[in-house]
Amino acid sequence: MAGVTIEELGLKFVKACMKLYWGSWWYPFLFAVGLLCTLIWGRKKSSRIFIGYTAFLFLTVYNPIVVKYVIARLDFENEYYRFIWILPVIPAIAYYGVTFVSSFHKKWLKGAAVVAVLGVFVVLGNPLNGVVKNFALAENIYKVPDELIQICEILHSKMSNPDARPRVVFDASLNNVARQYDAQFRLTIDRNASIYRAGSTVAGEFNEKSRRYKRQKAILDVIDYQIYDHPKKFRNALRKSNTKFVVVKKNDELHAFLLKNGCKQIAETESYYIYRYVGLEKDKKK
């Protein structure tokens, strides 16, 4: 996890990751209470699965000794937080909540139990605005911006070969969601290259001298950071990466730069310009 290293924390690494991951949530506490109740009163095999599962995790991937001497050697430190996902906190407390409500036979008691359980979840949980900033409901069933769907339809209409898999440069606002929506388009900019260029440490180690990263950085400098000092590097990066289309948010200065450097505007949406990299086609003709 970002800012947390095994070398620095040693046996305290797992505890630090858990604390950073769960933050102010008290759901792990509810989970622990549920496990305790299962040990004392649980008779159903369906509830005891949480005991065995949790015990296995704490003997392996949550074991500070295993983490310090095995995880560190596997170079899995930055991805370790993913192990925390497999602790069944949410499904378990949902199960315990339903079990608690079901233990009452009278309807009015069940109703009161539902209110009590929901109240506990709200009080001990973390408000959404503390987790997600600028929260907005999904615009469609694909959980991506409507404009991305429109852009992908336009790109498909501009392809001479419907079965082709062209490389596309999307700016930071669409790059990560584009790969989730339409797999036919290959992304010129890797997710890890993008977040590494932004200064993130969770992308792992990068060879800044590699040709692949240099090309991606030359493109990122222009489309995401509006640095126009090296137009030749930008053109070469588009050409050598075999990029066919470029999609960026509307920006007059960026628009002028792209037009001067081998990109031809072929369409637009409310917020985005769509370009074809014609410089690539000219180079092929040569």
Rank of each mutant, 00 (worst) to 15 (best):
I6Q: 03
E8F: 00
E8Q: 11
L11S: 10
F13N: 01
V14S: 00
K15N: 12
K15P: 03
A16C: 03
K19G: 14
G23F: 05
W26L: 15
Y27R: 05
P28L: 11
V33S: 09
T38S: 12
G42C: 10
S46N: 14
I51S: 12
I51A: 07
Y53E: 15
Y53Q: 15
T54S: 14
F58D: 12
T60G: 11
T60C: 09
V61K: 04
Y69F: 11
Y69A: 02
V70T: 04
A72V: 02
E79P: 04
Y81V: 11
W85Q: 13
L87T: 06
V89C: 03
S102P: 00
F104R: 00
H105V: 13
H105T: 14
K107P: 05
L109D: 07
K110Q: 14
A113Y: 03
V114K: 02
V117D: 13
G119M: 12
V123G: 07
L124N: 03
G125M: 09
N129F: 14
F135D: 08
L137W: 13
E139Q: 15
N140T: 03
I141C: 08
Y142S: 08
K143T: 08
D146A: 07
E147Q: 12
C152A: 07
C152W: 00
S157Q: 05
K158L: 10
N161V: 08
D163K: 08
R165A: 11
V169F: 03
F170H: 01
D171H: 08
L174C: 06
N176V: 10
V177K: 00
Q180T: 12
Q184T: 08
L187H: 06
T188G: 05
T188D: 09
I189R: 02
I195P: 01
R197V: 09
T201N: 12
V202I: 15
V202H: 10
A203F: 01
F206E: 07
E208R: 12
E208I: 13
K209C: 06
R211Q: 13
Y213R: 05
R215P: 01
A218K: 01
V222C: 11
I223K: 00
I223F: 08
I223A: 06
I227N: 11
D229G: 10
P231R: 04
N242W: 03
K244E: 15
V246H: 00
V246Q: 03
F257Y: 08
L259V: 12
N261Q: 10
Q265G: 09
Q265H: 02
E270N: 06
S271A: 01
Y277K: 00
V278W: 02
